[in-house]
Design a protein around this nucleic acid. Sequence first.
DNA 1: AATAATACCAAACAATCGTTTAGTATCAAG
DNA 2: CTTGATACTAAACGATTGTTTGGTATTATT
Lengths: 208, 208
Amino acid sequence: MARPFSTDLTARQRRILDWVRAFADRNGMPPTVREIGSAFKITPRSVFDYLKVLERKGCLKRGRLGARSLTFSSQPLRTCPNCVSVPVVGRIAAGQPLEAIEDASAAVTAGQELSKGGAVFALQVTGDSMVEAGILDGDIVLVRKQETADDGDIVVALLEDEATLKYLYREGKQIRLQPANSRLHPIYVDADKLRIQGKVVSVQRLLD
Amino acid sequence: MARPFSTDLTARQRRILDWVRAFADRNGMPPTVREIGSAFKITPRSVFDYLKVLERKGCLKRGRLGARSLTFSSQPLRTCPNCVSVPVVGRIAAGQPLEAIEDASAAVTAGQELSKGGAVFALQVTGDSMVEAGILDGDIVLVRKQETADDGDIVVALLEDEATLKYLYREGKQIRLQPANSRLHPIYVDADKLRIQGKVVSVQRLLD
DNA sequence: AATAATACCAAACAATCGTTTAGTATCAAG
DNA sequence: CTTGATACTAAACGATTGTTTGGTATTATT
């Protein structure tokens, strides 16, 4: 090997990559091979070579979806217009009422969680009644508002003005609210005494 | 005019629009007419009609750039301009090399995690070596690139081309990589044998 | 001198693209 | 009963797509 290829880019490659990313940012989609070509006055073939080099160097990925299937790996990242900021509206713990948080600064971001429709709100979890489900004290749960849920779902349930976070299991006419903590016992209630507020669709934790 | 067209969407139109937006979010580019069609099992022509309706109703714009030239206009919720879509670049497990994911559709959203600066990437966790830290199999960890970390941080560490996710503890000249699973044992290595790739700043889990 | 990465070209390939033409069926309001 | 919006289909159009074949020239290292 005469000259081993470097992992960093030549000036030309850099300029092309920058242009491609700027295009994707402006237009919401990556350019075609020929769009890049006409911007730099080079042929599709040359662009094709550049894309392969840039892919080898880890700057982007060429997809198999056909037209415009470029995705970028390293920063700067693409902002996502569909992401929303979900306010953390309260805290929730076993056996304790929902406690409102006025702190407007508390908010998390959600993406895919919203794709299935339905309003989503966020709660901060206190206590360790769900530790064995990987939900720790201080975690944020994203909850989709719904009045029904399937067996095994983690739900926010209202029991005489007390909100709890538990696994839901139907057992005949009764409902079992199962904590994920072997030191705690399940709660059994009549189905009509219980109001399901929503289902946990995501768990988020900040460690920093 | 018998029935004046409403500015709001039918259930079908809503579902299609949601899917299209979710696709654009996941893949970094809008879908083609036929991709939408095969997702809903309808012909390109029908999709074409839907797109024209959705454009008329102001939900998106069809561009003149040819393939995939859809841009979206209105957002129902509070969008957060600081949020970015972080691609999931690989999987990580104890004792296994980083494995690249070609699935460009995988991406999570990040907000506050980015506030402290530094590039952030996402990994999907396999295995249960960190269960007692509330990190389960399949969870996504957001990792900030950095070469140093504090005692007790959860880090992505590279050990002779093997990447692992562990607690980091310095013990003299050695480093202890501590799993959060009482069935697993810590790994001791010389500080110069270890390369820290980054620190886990957030854990995300999708339950839906 | 040999090697290999860079930086381009013309011409063409099959596949896919958005779109058009020409229809059918349902449903609700005037 | 008509009108117009919705919700679709089959078949095809020309344009554009990523990619391939098969090159030339330059530059920098071994």
